[in-house]
Structures are given as structure tokens and as C-alpha cells.
Amino acid sequence: MSHRKKPSNAHGSSQSTSNAGPTATQEEEDDATFTQPSTMQVQKGLEKLTPAQVDQKTAEVVQYFLVKDQKKIPIRRADLVKHVVKEYRNIYPEIMKRAARTFDQVFGLKMVEIDPKNHLYILINKLEPVTGASPITNPTNPKLGLLFVILSVIFMKGGVVRESVVWKILKNLGVDIGEKHEEFGDSKKVVIEEFVRQRYLEYVRIPHTEPVEHQFRWGQRAEVEVSKPNILLFMGALHGQEPQSWSQQYQEAHRAPNSSQSGTSSQR
């Protein structure tokens, strides 16, 4: 199991050595059967297909993304190729290009590769969130409130937090991980399994701890989906303070023009 060396104040700088040992190797093996075709191969592949065939395959990829996105599960390139793209793998880049264009132009969504090593994709909303009441209330997931609190705690504490700290804060807010919660059920499971699977959180063992202890960081989805300036505004409102009064967090939140993009990977 590899761990980030040090909780440097900027998150993500050591992204490439991220979590999860066994699954990563599994993914690499699956993915090894797939090599990106060259531009030349794509050209040749397209010549053999009718435009309708390419459109059909693009539509299937779009549908696959939309179904997975409903449950916020990241899409693995290996799965996508195996279950959807199949015999069209020789024109995979072209199909992805078209699917991304459709998400952008029709749905107002952006396809983002959150993990360039394991080739994981998610969809994020390109439309600005609107404050003020929408005429109809979208069904919101109550778990997202729980998530927002945890992400705020991690952010305010410099990017990494021991799990015991998080459990204590949640308990103060009425969510006791030792008890069944009426809304979330097993809340610990929601946090350390569901949020981790959805890549909102990273949950990593702290080395050399006895008994075993874990710590939380922001997951890759949180980095691209959750606005840090908004978290500061929320904290400011909560404590009756100006967001600027947390100078380190304020700098971090406003570091890059699109702060949500900066943290993911240095490659892009």
C-alpha cells in the first residue's frame, strides 16, 4: 500500500502515488489489454464504418455515462471498452471525442478524467449553480449534506484529518457512527465506503499506528466538483466571519482562476 509521503499544504501535489493497492493493480491488468489506437488507426477504422454506426456507438457510450453518473460512480476506461465500446475499440478516441462534445453541447456537462493513471472519468456540471429558489425542488440527496460537512472539516484543517476528529464532529452534529442513523443507516459505511467509491473522499491508513487509524483527504471527484470558495463562504456564514479571515484557506481556494481544476493532476 502506498501512501502520500507528507500532507503538504497543497493537496494533490503527490496525486500520482495515491491510494488503494490491490484494486490499482487489477485495473492496470484489465487496462493493459487496451492500447490507445493511433490517429492513423482511427482514420482507417472510421473509413470502414458508416456514420450511423459511429453515432450509435457514441449514443451507447453517452447512455452508459449517464446511468453510472446517477449513482456517482466513476467510469473506468477498461469497463467502458469491455462492455460498451467493444469491437469499436480501434476508434475509441473518436467516440470519446464525440461523447464529450454531446455532454458539452446537449447536457451542459463536462467529461473529466479524474485519474489519468487508471483512466477514470466523471461528469461534472458546467452550468453555474444558481442561488435562490428553483420553481421545482430537485430531489436532493440528504447524504450530500453529510459529505459537505466532512469536506469542509478536511479543507479547514489543511487537507488531511484523522478519522477520530471527523467522527467526533459528526457526533456533535447528531450523527453518531456507533448508532443506526434514521436517514443514513450505517453512517460510517456511507462515509468510508460510498463516498470513497464515488471518489469524494480518500480514506487511508496512517502508517505505524496501533490500533489502526485512518485519515481522510479530499477525493478526486471533490477536487473537480466542489467549490472551495463556497465552502469558505459557508464557514464564514456559520461563524459570522469574513472568508478572508482564514488567510491560508482563502489563498488556497482562490489560488487558480478555476480553483476546482487546479488540484487534480500536474499532467494537465
Binding site: V106, F107, L127, I136, P139
Partner: peptide
């Protein structure tokens, strides 16, 4: 399509 269409579609997708 403009952003108003896209937002409408997103509302339909959510509901």
C-alpha cells in the same frame, strides 16, 4: 440549444 435548454434538460434528468 442554449444554456436555458441545457438547464431545463438537467432539471428533467433530476426529476
Amino acid at each position: 440549444m442554449g444554456d436555458s435548454h441545457r438547464r431545463f434538460l438537467q432539471t428533467m434528468m433530476a426529476n
